[in-house]
Amino acid sequence: MSTTQMMKGILDGCLLAIIKDREVYGYELAEQLELYGFDALSEGTIYPLLLRMQKEELVTSTRKKSTAGPKRKYYSLTAKGEQELEHFIGRWEYLQTNVNRVLKHETASDESQGRG
């Protein structure tokens, strides 16, 4: 798996998590990602992901008027999207734990027996 592919799956999860907090439109989403530290990303990267997530019915969108400029497209999670977020969190925790163990040279049995 290439870094970009790995990133995509992770970004999907991050987008779901941000959208779960509140309804957001594209620019806000990109800004939030940047605030959380994903600042090397091209901001437009989120749109193909949003298109796919919409196709997979993980998110829905409504268009709302803004004070200046054309209508903004706001995203919110569907029930399926919330489920997917749960799955992502599970996968992420599993991955994170294992990667950390590898980096710290621990094995799964070390932890269950208490360190020793």
Binding site: S42, E43, G44, G69, R72, K73
Partner: peptide
Amino acid sequence: EELEVHLMEAEQKGKSVEKIV
């Protein structure tokens, strides 16, 4: 239209097109 909104806001903050696309 969605990208137009994004580009407008980004440009107001002085970001380049490359930063977006």
